[in-house]
Amino acid sequence: MQVIRSVKEMKTRSMDLRRHGKTIGFVPTMGFLHEGHLSLVDLIRKDCDILLLSIYVNPTQFGVGEDFDKYPRDTERDLELCRSRGVDLVFIPESSEIYAENASTYVVEEEVGMGMCGNARPNHFRGVATVCAKLFNLCLPNYVALGQKDAQQVVVLKRMIRDLHFPIEVVVGPILREPDGLAMSSRNKYLQPKQREEALLVYQSIQAAQKVVEEKGSSNVDRVKAEVLNVLKQGRLLRVNYVDIVDRGTMRPEKEIAAGRSLLAVAVWVDQVRLIDNFCF
């Protein structure tokens, strides 16, 4: 496994690989890897000659007062996990190379990223789209693997790839959960035992919504959202950021729930820890 830290070296390496007809699969991450990230490696490994993973905590997708400085980092552990999973290249750039001192160019998606996390975290998706455009230009992947847990982010990046004509196929991996049902996330590290106990209400609320739709046959958006909120309000440390039911392709609010189309998205604060989860009906 090769570790690349220079933007120039990454660009030269990826251009050389493509020139020799190699297929590149790419998993962009912010590090502190867990099984959810590694499942994306497994997902596209068979389709690629070269499997490339990036580790970069992107400052432009964090807002004022968010957790950029304390975001968990453990590069050596990450590299060992990459070796164990058969990753070929790991790109770990410095911010000074990704963003020039006077950088003034950003990528802004103006439709699917406007609601939900777009409202809750202004400029978050601008940062995500910008850094991913930079990484795509440097790494030149044929395939990029993204996780369904970040459902709105997936749709934003798909739209950017389509609109800017990146020759990339997106592969989306399912949400992976801990044995207790909590969606895997690097931020789970922040949770103390009582906080983690209340965080489980998020998945329990999703299960309650699934039961109302699949067992009771309801397609009423307000009823299903009320069921979710009824579960979440049991948490004393938990504050709801949003509960939305949207079209999974456009991120627009649904008037009624339709199988194969509708997405339930939930975001909460457990004390100072923000968690997201979702379910596709």
Rank of each mutant, 00 (worst) to 15 (best):
D277T: 01
L146E: 09
V107W: 14
Q148N: 04
K22F: 04
F279A: 07
G65S: 05
G249D: 14
D74L: 01
R5I: 04
F136K: 11
I206R: 08
I98F: 10
D47W: 12
L79N: 08
M30W: 12
T105L: 14
S95T: 14
R239D: 14
A267Y: 12
A183Q: 06
V131H: 07
P179F: 11
G173Y: 14
N142D: 15
P253D: 00
Q152E: 08
R45T: 00
E66K: 04
K134I: 03
R19P: 01
N142H: 15
S6Q: 06
V41Q: 02
K225V: 14
H124N: 04
D49V: 03
L51C: 09
F136E: 08
R13A: 12
Q207Y: 10
V154A: 05
A208G: 05
P72A: 02
V243T: 12
Q153S: 00
F62A: 00
T12S: 12
V57I: 13
V243A: 13
V170Y: 10
K134L: 06
A100G: 15
T23Y: 08
S14K: 12
S104L: 07
S95Y: 09
C280E: 14
S104D: 14
T23H: 09
L200P: 07
N220I: 02
R248E: 13
R223F: 08
E178F: 08
I98N: 08
L176W: 10
L263H: 10
G118A: 02
R159N: 13
L229T: 08
P59V: 01
A199S: 05
T12H: 13
D74Q: 10
I168Y: 08
F279W: 15
I257G: 00
A208V: 07
L275D: 01
S218W: 12
V270P: 05
L138N: 03
K211N: 11
A209V: 01
A133N: 01
G36K: 07
D222K: 15
S219P: 01
D277I: 01
K70V: 14
F32Y: 15
F125M: 03
F166C: 01
A226D: 15
V243F: 11
N188I: 00
